[in-house]
Design a protein around this nucleic acid. Structure first.
Ligand SMILES: [Zn+2]
Ligand SMILES: [Zn+2]
Ligand SMILES: [Zn+2]
Ligand SMILES: [Zn+2]
Lengths: 161, 161
DNA sequence: TATCTAACGTTATGTCATAACAATCAAGGC
DNA sequence: GCCTTGATTGTTATGACATAACGTTAGATA
């Protein structure tokens, strides 16, 4: 796997795959987090997938490479990656995707294309702030958020227009 | 069922249950939508539940009242309600909730309390606008969105402080 | 080395959701 | 009225997603 950049316009501004992995490794070392073989391989898969993967897709790959063959193996690795900021869960798709910016903590928003199924991580600072403000108006203290938009990506909009 | 107002502070500003149902009926009539017995009963349940209900919870109630006993019965009613703006789906909970403002189309945000499991629908105009803007910056055209915050509601914050 | 804990793997089960098809019902044209 | 047509409701069966519980292994600690 020597891919050094993404292939579609949706990701023109994203870090390339190798760079994402480097950021993740640096962060794991810095925080004393154990990026074990299963976890690391799972993360590599998510990065290479260039989009969202279901837990059972991940499991299939892991099993083919000699790791465990049962669902908890995939779910444990995926949940650990999510909890530690290396990946995100896309609830609308019941799927997971590698974080594009694992170097720093952040709330992410996802742009899900209804036509080509692509998933793009977008900066959600302003959105998160607006949501937090709306919550505060109701006396609600926000810990974390799920923010997902469904529509058409730039490629598919072009095709339709 | 003659409840005319909600019981907890989280909903102090919400329309009361009967009023929500009236709004929904008016809207159905106005738009020529068929609020059939199963659909109407399902909506009433969601309103009375005063929070989110899983599809299988709904199914259990419907079955007990003489409607169908199999999952598609509940899912069809729930999906119809969601598609036509009478209810919302809470993805984080794999559950559904009655729309608090069925009179007009809107993007909703949900405040999910991690302590007491309450779910509150909050106005999401500003949040949706911010998300739409972030999407547009990526050339993405947003159709609809899932916006859910997890944290602690005003009641539970009080208790902890 | 002895001990402790995190991580891994398994079996088994639970929960959520839909495909496919048959029966029924409401509305419009004859 | 009677038939056609599409929407709605019901069923059986299956698929997809996720976790509980427990034993084993591997790394760290003393
Ligand atoms: Zn991220
Ligand atoms: Zn697309
Ligand atoms: Zn609503
Ligand atoms: Zn609460």
């Amino acid at each position: 796997m020597t891919q050094t950049s993404f292939c579609c316009p949706d990701h023109s501004g994203a870090q390339d795959a190798a760079n994402i992995l480097l950021q993740a490794e640096a962060r794991a070392a810095r925080m004393g987090l154990r990026l074990t073989p299963v976890r690391r391989r799972t993360l590599e898969m998510l990065i290479a997938a260039h989009g969202a993967m279901g837990a059972y897709d991940v499991l299939e790959c892991l099993a083919a490479e000699g790791y465990g063959t049962q669902p908890p193996v995939a779910y444990r690795a995926l949940n650990w990656l999510v909890e530690n900021g290396f990946a995100h869960r896309i609830r609308r798709l019941n799927a997971f995707t590698a974080c594009a910016h694992p170097a720093h903590d952040h709330t992410a928003a996802f742009l899900i294309c209804a036509t080509c199924d692509s998933v793009t991580e977008a900066p959600a600072g302003a959105v998160s702030a607006a949501l937090s403000a709306a919550a505060e108006a109701a006396g609600f203290v926000m810990d974390r958020a799920t923010i997902e938009a469904v529509g058409r990506c730039s490629v598919c909009v072009e095709g339709t227009a």
